[in-house]
Computed example of a mutant assay.
Amino acid sequence: MNVEWWLVRHGLTAWNAERRYQGHSDLPLLPGEASGLAELRRELAGVDFAAVYVSDLRRCRETLAWARPDLLDGAQQDPRLREMNFGRWEGQTYEMLKDNERYRTWIDDPQAATPPDGESWQAFEARVSGVCGEFLTRTEALAGSDSISNSNSSFGSLANVRLRETFPPSAVRLYPSLPLTASQPLEPTRLLIVTHGGVISLICSLLQPNLSFWDTRVGPGGVKRLYFREEGEPEVEKEAYDE
């Protein structure tokens, strides 16, 4: 099995530049190369993807249209790939909110507080876990095996299960690059997922129990690749993350 997920964060918006919470607010990208997507366009050029998924928010759809317009018509839009809903905090900055007691509690422990009229951490995690489980099922089908890790786990039922309790951590490895070996196909099967920074961080922490949400950071227009290998294949030395 040789399957990759390419997790792409959308390009820059005006609120990114101003360090404002965006969440479900549907802002466009900054125009032209101000969106910071020139490198992403070069990185995705000519790459084949078995399936393409994109958050239904404008900044993600525009990112895909800017970087790979040929993939836009076939992309599956999914609102579960949206960023966390920050409610009345959207459009606000840290400086504007830092004296708010509820905000301070949320910053220290996002599971203990919910943005006013926003989304709880538990709801955010549940919807991302759901779509992640479906991606795992698709990955399993693409791999053509009964189980990603040669175990008895049923990935089709993961929508309502915490992935970190079910998915064997040895079956997923996260590297900034993966050298080819003689046992690996030259051309992997790839999924392209265009989404938001918080969603990427959460997916990585769900699939790797040794990672916290805060351990993965991807800048606007950045790519985080997840490499799926069966147990028993050659180990690959872990490299430093390249954010």
Rank of each mutant, 00 (worst) to 15 (best):
H24T: 12
G221E: 02
D70N: 09
G156C: 11
S149R: 06
N152V: 08
Q22F: 00
T114D: 03
P188F: 02
G36S: 09
W106N: 05
D99L: 14
V128L: 13
V161G: 03
D108P: 00
W66D: 14
R61D: 04
E95Q: 14
I107M: 14
S157P: 00
Q184L: 15
P179V: 10
E90L: 07
L207Q: 10
R164C: 05
P28M: 07
E33K: 07
R217A: 12
N2F: 01
P79V: 04
W6P: 02
R88Q: 13
G197A: 06
L30H: 01
V52H: 08
S201M: 07
R59E: 14
G32C: 03
M84V: 10
L29I: 07
T93H: 06
A65H: 04
G232H: 10
V223L: 14
S149Q: 05
V8S: 02
C132A: 15
Q111H: 12
R138L: 15
E95W: 05
D146M: 08
L57E: 06
Y175I: 13
A143F: 04
S25Y: 02
S183D: 08
P110Y: 05
I148V: 14
L29H: 02
W121A: 12
E119Y: 09
G130T: 09
A65C: 07
L178S: 11
Q122E: 14
D56Y: 06
E101P: 11
R138H: 09
L191A: 01
L206S: 01
N2W: 00
V223M: 10
Y94T: 13
P220I: 00
N16L: 00
S201E: 03
F49I: 05
R42Y: 01
L37D: 06
L44F: 08
E39P: 00
V194G: 04
L7A: 04
C60F: 05
G130P: 02
F86H: 05
R229S: 14
L158N: 10
A75M: 10
L97F: 02
P110G: 06
Y227E: 12
L207G: 08
V52C: 10
K238E: 14
H196T: 08
V54Y: 03
V223A: 10
D48M: 02
D26V: 11
E231K: 15
W214Q: 12
V194D: 03
W121K: 03
P234K: 03
R190V: 07
S120R: 05
R9K: 09
T139S: 15
V194Y: 01
R61Y: 00
G46N: 06
R162E: 09
D146T: 08
E125Y: 11
T166D: 07
R229Q: 15
L12D: 10
T105D: 12
H24D: 10
S145P: 00
L180Q: 14
S149G: 13
S147Y: 01
L57H: 08
Q208T: 11
L27Y: 07
R127P: 04
V223P: 07
R41Y: 00
W5E: 03
H196Q: 10
S212Q: 13
D146Y: 03
L27F: 05
